[in-house]
């Protein structure tokens, strides 16, 4: 299937808080990062967990977040990052421009 994002795209994780088997960590919600690459195209774990077939498959991206973006009081080196695998339906384009 086609993918909505490519390497270098700036994305924002939706600040949504649905119940259920959600694979998007809280600490990334509403945060901006950069797509490092496509991790996989896989069945949707959020529906698969409840007996559905998880179709259609969804692209999962490796999204890189600066630690200083995730934690405003981050005390480590400003170059530190966290890379999180995030399903496409959790991502929206951020900032408008590609880096």
């Amino acid at each position: 299937m086609s993918q909505n994002f490519s390497i270098g795209d700036r994305v924002r994780v939706r600040a949504a808080y649905p119940p259920g088997h959600v694979r998007t960590p809280y600490y990334t919600r509403g945060k901006e990062g950069v797509v490092m690459g496509l991790a996989a195209v896989m069945a949707n774990a959020e529906t698969l967990a409840y007996g559905a077939d998880g179709k259609p498959d969804i692209p999962i991206y490796r999204v890189s977040f600066p630690q200083t973006q995730l934690w405003p009081d981050y005390a480590g080196d400003p170059s530190d990052t966290a890379v999180v695998d995030i399903y496409e339906h959790w991502l929206v384009a951020a900032g408008g421009s590609k880096t």
Binding site: R23, T24, A40, M42, I60, V83, V84, D85, Y87
Partner: peptide, 8 residues
């Protein structure tokens, strides 16, 4: 660089 293996 921390890798959080949240998915597949």
């Amino acid at each position: 660089r921390v890798h959080d293996s949240t998915a597949e």
